[in-house]
Amino acid sequence: MTKRFHLYFDDSGSRRPDHKPNPARTDGMDYFALGGIILAEDDIDALIAMYKAFMERWELNYPLHSTKIRGARGPFGWLRSHPEKAERFLADLENYLLSLPVIGMACVIDRPGYVARYAEKYGGQPWLMCKTAYAILVERSAKYAQRHGGQLEVFFEQAGKAEDTDIKNYTRLMKRDGMPFDKGTSANYGGLTAEDLRGIILGEPRERTKKTPMMQVADLYLYPMVKGGYDPSYGPYRALMNARRIIDAQLTAEELGSLGVKYSCFDGKR
């Protein structure tokens, strides 16, 4: 039987090319990203068991949420008021994430670089940023499944009726027409054909909520991959790379351009 892989992905940052951070970030990050984790279907039960053990260990009954954990906000406000406990929690969370049988994959678009390169050509249509990120993320995840003798199922976190419909439409177009990029300028990336994508991607993407353990892990993996594009010394990014939990750590230098995490429009920033 053909092995099956699952892609679980979340989004981060505004989808609008004309979005301006308010207030402006001191770290220079201004981006839109789609990304998360790939795991073999056979490893899902193990991941769920590890998730339940972690949640029980810390007596948590609410989802792990990257933004709230990093900012010690909402249900994670106790991280601010109990620093010693927070230190133990964050160390255990890192160990938990590094131990999971998953691979991080993402497409991160630098917004100013995107606007400078494409705004005039495409009129700055907001949907193009999401469509670009989605096509690259799914195609590279499909390549991963193909390289490991398998097929791919895609799962995404619900964002809204229009956004969810867009994701499904993007997939239909990819299966019908192939990658939505100029074939002359994208030839070096070794893009999969429409026939390839139809053979690798099973069915249509399916919605999941933040209650799904795999979606929470996808959320926790995405931010370090984003931050690593701007600051490769970022601790959580380095930890994932050193543990070979991000796809880039498993590729040769020659393979990164067509198979690794895509940092798009980062001209001069990396």
Rank of each mutant, 00 (worst) to 15 (best):
K3N: 12
F5H: 01
L7Q: 05
F9Q: 03
D10A: 09
S14V: 06
R16Y: 14
D18Y: 09
D18K: 09
P21H: 09
P21L: 10
A24R: 13
R25I: 08
R25H: 12
R25F: 10
G28T: 06
G28Q: 06
G35L: 01
G35V: 03
G35T: 04
I37C: 03
A40C: 12
D42M: 07
I44K: 10
L60W: 11
L60T: 12
N61V: 13
N61S: 15
P63K: 00
H65F: 11
K68M: 14
I69H: 02
G71A: 15
A72H: 04
G74D: 15
G74Y: 09
F76C: 06
F76E: 04
G77I: 11
E84G: 09
E84S: 14
L90I: 09
L90T: 05
D92G: 06
D92L: 07
E94C: 13
L97P: 00
S99Y: 09
G104R: 01
P112G: 10
Y114Q: 08
R117F: 09
Y122F: 14
Q125R: 14
M129N: 07
C130N: 11
C130G: 13
C130R: 13
K131Q: 13
Y134V: 00
A135H: 00
L137P: 00
G149T: 07
G150A: 04
L152Q: 02
V154Q: 06
F155H: 15
A162S: 12
A162P: 00
K168M: 13
N169Y: 09
T171D: 13
R172S: 12
D177L: 12
G178R: 01
P180A: 02
F181Q: 04
K183M: 11
K183Y: 08
S186N: 10
Y189V: 10
G191I: 07
G191D: 12
G191R: 11
D196Q: 06
G199K: 03
I200D: 01
I200A: 02
I200T: 02
I201M: 09
I201V: 15
P205H: 05
E207K: 14
R208P: 06
T209K: 08
T212H: 13
P213N: 07
D219R: 01
L220R: 00
L222N: 00
Y223W: 15
M225R: 04
G229V: 04
Y237I: 01
A243I: 05
R245L: 07
R245K: 15
I246K: 00
D248Y: 02
Q250N: 15
L251W: 00
T252P: 00
L256R: 11
L256H: 09
S258G: 12
L259Y: 07
L259S: 10
G260P: 04
G260E: 04
V261I: 11
Y263I: 03
C265D: 12
D267L: 08
